[in-house]
Design a protein around this nucleic acid. Structure first.
Lengths: 362, 362
DNA sequence: CTGAAAGCGCTTACAG
DNA sequence: CTGAAAGCGCTTACAG
């Protein structure tokens, strides 16, 4: 175990002051080339390495950002994180990652820990779009924050989200255009809005859902489903809309099974995210239904298997990497001092048409 | 933008010394209940938050560990990272994550950055099992290190790996037992050993491959493939062994296509990891081959789709979460001061039999 | 271009 | 149980 060399050690060996050694080793201020050489040589001899902690304590910046994601194991977050990491690494920043498991309590704790570690900024996919005092405090505190995938009511900070309503609308419209009239929906649909699911459906069809901006993504996608029906002039059968209530493929599978084992099952299903899609496809597989002959399917988010699972699953692909890259870029800009008003980057999902929709005889 | 309150501010408001305030706020040393109350109240009023940087500078510990993984977006690493995060969060440690993309240069840079940030320990999946001076230095430096998935020649530190040779042997033996005699292998096989692929196959069959411990996982799995053939008394057709040379599903797909488009294609294929499996299944899908009727398949690593892709893909499941949990636990033990000799945790993969192997007429 | 001194926000002996 | 003082390893005015 070697004792770590400090700037003082290097300075002593090089025969200069710690201030000068610091200037050379930290590449700031002015130094004579000759001095630089002396110091660098001493540093090399001692195996000197910067202690970023001490530097950060003075400069007030750690060159580290924190990310609070739902679950790094989920491909959705994994890709976003990769996008974030790419940008962050390019700027020589560190990346501190914590899982929230969509629990408000964990999220609060995560934000606290990250603040204590003095991150220069935070990217959070908030698990509660209303109760977010810890995030509002951040803003008051002056710590840059970027919201990911979800917005928070009344919190005006940078964010990057997907145009969920429009995207889901297009996905469902594709089904409608193929003649489907009974389209099932399997959605996570956490965070029940006032009036419950039934109330939401009623208001959604009546065009009475306000502040759609701060709705949870799966609720926004349900809204897209409803709007697509309304635009097609088709009624919505509430019993076809199934709520899983958790980010769990297993639970989604059970919900999907109940939906498709039904005698008068829908002719098509819309799964509102990658996890739901896994559950739905598992249900389809265990029921030995053939897609699209016996059941058409449209998913949301493009997972690897969707391309090679015959007949190819049509889906709304979210630009996950870009979401992460943009969030990180925005955050870095704030850290560099940008004062522009809060930006809302709404990215479009792209419909990837493969083979999981069949035309229904009308 | 609120000015951050420091211990000095709290001490002043509470009318005590900074030492006392520090004792209360940092929960160390002795303090009177009454004093505690005064200090806590002052802290609350000022919105005091600990500056972990300052504390770490003194204590010499950051309660943060660093992980260098190949690619956090890859399900293999994503799950391992989740396992690590679970343990680490439970112990109230932070987690700094960097991607190496299996590039030695990036790995070295990552380790450097993490050291400068003064992590208490590192978990690395080394991308080079020989050139690893940066890792040997770590050891000399006294910084706890746990190796993940791969060992490094001559580096005696804790590590957690999979029994790749045995596991691959069992996977291939299952194919052999079903009467297959022409089994293709699609492997990543980076880091060519001396004598190249052909030389390795020859030595592997002759039982002359030494230091199998520090072989790259895909080479170990190839060795398992060879040993299974030897034990079955069957010759190996070298042309059936295909090297991708990169962790890329796209490249694996092209390699697999070349293998199975062949007129006298193998009757079964063994894919040596999750990424290779994706490439192989994509090739099978685009060639419209039916599994297992036209081609049997065994994979390595159990990805979500393998369970619901008909007919269900048989595979060697690696305990990814456990790998991460164990690695983190080992590291935390070292950080707590454990001095036991370096431990090599070799975990078993479990054969998950589904429907992708069919019996060949003998 | 360089050095002496102060200080970032904590914790740690040491004395009382 | 508490306080005064020193110090962790750097950077930052300030003087020269």
């Amino acid at each position: 175990m070697v004792k770590k060399a400090t700037i003082a050690d290097v300075a002593r060996l090089a025969g200069v002051s710690t201030a000068t050694a610091g200037r050379v080793l930290g590449s700031y201020g002015y130094t004579k080339a000759e001095t630089r050489d002396k110091v660098m040589q001493a540093a090399r001899k001692l195996g000197y390495r910067t202690n970023a902690l001490a530097r950060s304590l003075i400069t007030g910046r750690t060159r580290t950002i924190g990310v609070v994601a739902g679950d790094i194991q989920n491909p959705f977050y994994a890709s976003i994180l990769r996008g974030i990491a790419d940008v962050v690494e390019r700027h020589e920043f560190g990346l501190l990652i914590v899982n929230s498991d969509e629990s408000l309590e964990k999220e609060i704790r995560a934000v606290n820990v990250l603040m204590e570690k003095q991150v220069d900024g935070l990217i959070v996919s908030p698990c509660d779009t209303r109760n977010a005092r810890h995030l509002r405090d951040l803003q008051a505190f002056g710590l840059p924050l970027v919201l990911l995938d979800r917005a928070v009511a009344g919190l005006e900070v940078d964010r990057v989200t997907i145009d969920n309503i429009a995207a889901a609308g297009r996905a469902v419209a594709a089904l409608l255009a193929a003649g489907h009239k009974r389209i099932g929906l399997v959605g996570e649909l956490l965070e029940e809005p006032e009036g419950g699911l039934a109330g939401f459906i009623r208001r959604g069809l009546a065009g009475e859902v306000l502040s759609t901006d701060t709705l949870y993504p799966s609720w926004q996608r349900l809204l897209g489903y409803l709007q697509a029906h309304r635009q097609a002039g088709l009624p919505v059968d509430e019993t076809l809309i199934r709520r899983v209530g958790a980010y769990s493929a297993e639970k989604a599978q059970r919900v999907a099974e109940a939906l498709i084992h039904n005698a008068d099952r829908p002719t098509a299903v819309f799964a509102t995210d990658g996890t739901m899609s896994e559950g739905v496809i598992a249900a389809i597989s265990s029921a030995r239904l053939s897609v699209p002959d016996q059941l058409s399917l449209v998913c949301f988010d493009d997972l690897e298997w969707m391309s090679f699972l015959p007949p190819g699953i049509s889906t709304m692909a979210q630009p996950r990497l870009a979401m992460g890259e943009i969030a990180a870029t925005m955050l870095l800009e704030r850290i560099e001092g940008s004062q522009v008003p809060a930006r809302a980057q709404v990215l479009s999902a792209e419909f990837v048409e493969r083979g999981s929709i069949t035309r229904r005889p009308t």
